[in-house]
Design a binder for these strands. Sequence first.
DNA 1: CCATGTGAACAAATTCACAGCA
DNA 2: TGCTGTGAATTTGTTCACATGG
Lengths: 210, 210
Amino acid sequence: MSLIPDISPLTLNRLSVYLRCLRILEAEGETKVSSGALADRFELSPAQIRKDLAHFGEFGVRGVGYDVESLGAHLHELLGLNAQHNLVVVGIGNLGSALCSFLGFNDSSFRVVAGVDADPERVGKQVGDITVQPLEALETVVESAGIEMGVLTIPPEAATQCYERLVASGIRSILNFAAVQLPHRSDVRVKNVDFRVFLEELAFFRRDPS
Amino acid sequence: MSLIPDISPLTLNRLSVYLRCLRILEAEGETKVSSGALADRFELSPAQIRKDLAHFGEFGVRGVGYDVESLGAHLHELLGLNAQHNLVVVGIGNLGSALCSFLGFNDSSFRVVAGVDADPERVGKQVGDITVQPLEALETVVESAGIEMGVLTIPPEAATQCYERLVASGIRSILNFAAVQLPHRSDVRVKNVDFRVFLEELAFFRRDPS
DNA sequence: CCATGTGAACAAATTCACAGCA
DNA sequence: TGCTGTGAATTTGTTCACATGG
């Protein structure tokens, strides 16, 4: 079906946003929505919505708009959410725990199936659905639980080593919350998330305009 | 001094990244760095580094490069990090707690000075430097502690109401982790962070290319 | 010399505006 | 009529290549 052309990261992230918006409308009982209505409701650009969607076929009906449910289903599939993605969370501090519980009741595209921590105090703890295992078990766990994505929620000093171990275990998709530059590998996709960048963006607009 | 021209969000976020890189080099004892060396080390583009920095004056020395310490200081100031920014965290679950402790030992540009939660079980708990206070105390706390930024780490149902209360208390900068569309106000800056968007970006590149 | 700073060339992304279809 | 889908126009962002100056 959908032979997907090249897609920019900006467009890709907007598709996630659109999907979120559609789910909200769906919960409100809406069945049809136009690009203009979507844009008004969620502060988006109608032309951009249409452009973004048009890359992947003709999902809308002229004069009417889009079917909330079927467009949602299309985006869901397009984003690779039909498959279930098993995750391991490395570092079960507060942030790691937050992700474990967050991805418990989620719509099951993502599921944390294991969590490991270097701290013996934390090993054995129950967080969301999982029991914390020792860091040494990382490779074993990845292989036995069919894990395909790793989440790094550990201090920066430990991040690179854990990254190497995840990659050596066959993981090719990593969400990294540690503020370090992980070594680049063309076959591994890393998504870096740095909270300080978000805060600094807010701080910039509060600076003294001297 | 620095009369700052308009700056794109992309450039702004890169400045944060540059600052992070400079701090690492500083810790390693480097005193000078060229755009090329920075780019090699951190997988950036040398021309872009120069363009980005050149917006704000001539920080480099031709034939030499940039002074790690003084460029760091410039960026620090430029990003509004000389001032201390007091934050309130609304919702002290795992994610809220993570932010409280994360911004404990930080370099003091950002400080969580208060945390509130609707759950009586959590009120009185000690997290990082702060003692959790009841949600009702939100306005009082904001006004008495000189708070200028709010962080929303609460379930989506509660987010809009807390947003309104933060804004009514005078807060104009908000970091929002709840997956809702907060009402737009031209005088309030909201930075939305949605973990699912990050995960879906990774999932997209794992989808079945049918 | 060597690396910055910068205008000019290029590329990407967004918006416009309208043809085409239910 | 009304909204999609889309080429064309515009704006924004990136890269190139070189003149400039320590």
